[in-house]
Each structure stands twice: as structure tokens, then as C-alpha cells.
Design a protein around this nucleic acid. Structure first.
Length: 107
DNA sequence: GCCATGGCTAGTA
DNA sequence: GCCATGGCTAGTA
């Protein structure tokens, strides 16, 4: 499947499937990486419509501030936090700690 | 086509 | 203020 033929949502999903366990990306970086700078909010929409969370790991996408952000999968934000913690992402007070180290960008 | 609705955010105050 | 989605309506054919 040629990635240029994929729609916005599929491009998002394909990208976030590359995020390693224990790491996160921001909505804005996802937008940037698929060539749609400024579409952070639309990335949120795509994540909301993710048909198979958490297999397609939309829980690994957080706000640019390090704040966890929303989650429409099982158990909502609590579920998102639980998944991330299980994967080794340090979280307290609703934000990712050591954000600089945990934040991931494709190489 | 228009409009409302969001898992948002850079940049002002 | 931005952008993809989805629902709905004029207004054409």
C-alpha cells in the first residue's frame, strides 16, 4: 500500500504503530510527520476514531505540554494512564515525566 | 456547500 | 485559530 494514497487517518495510524513501548509522540508531531503541520486537532479526531485501540496505540499520543490528553478507549483517561504506566512511561499528576527522554520522533 | 464538534496548540498577556 | 469528520440543507437538474 503506497502511503501517499492513504487517507489522513490511515497515515496517522501507520505512523503511531511505529512508536515503541515506553515512548510517546505529541499530536502536533504526528501531524508534522505526516506532512500536515498545524493539524494537531485533526490528529486528535483521528485518534478518537481509532477502530482498534489499544492495538493501534493511540494511547501513546499525548499533548505537547506532556499532559496526558484525552482518550476514548476503554476506561477513558484512566485507561490511557494505566496502559502507559504498564509500558514504563512515568506519569504523575496527569503528565508524562521526563518528557524529553520519553518523547519519540521517527528517525 | 455550510456548520458544529472535538483526544489540540503557538503565542499573547 | 487550526483541521478532518459527519450531519444536513439549499438549490440544481
Amino acid at each position: 500500500m503506497n502511503r501517499l494514497s492513504l487517507g489522513f487517518r490511515e497515515r496517522c495510524y501507520e505512523l503511531i504503530r511505529q512508536i515503541p513501548q515506553g515512548r510517546v509522540m505529541t499530536y502536533g508531531d504526528v501531524a508534522l510527520c505526516i506532512g500536515k503541520p498545524g493539524a494537531a486537532r485533526a490528529v486528535g479526531t483521528a485518534m478518537r476514531l481509532n477502530p482498534d485501540a489499544p492495538t493501534t496505540p493511540c494511547h501513546r499520543v499525548v499533548a505537547s505540554s506532556g499532559v496526558i490528553g484525552n482518550y476514548s478507549g476503554k476506561r477513558g483517561v484512566a485507561g490511557k494512564i494505566a496502559l502507559l504506566r504498564k509500558e514504563g512511561v512515568p506519569i504523575s499528576d496527569g503528565r508524562v515525566r521526563e518528557f524529553g527522554r520519553v518523547r519519540w520522533r521517527p528517525t
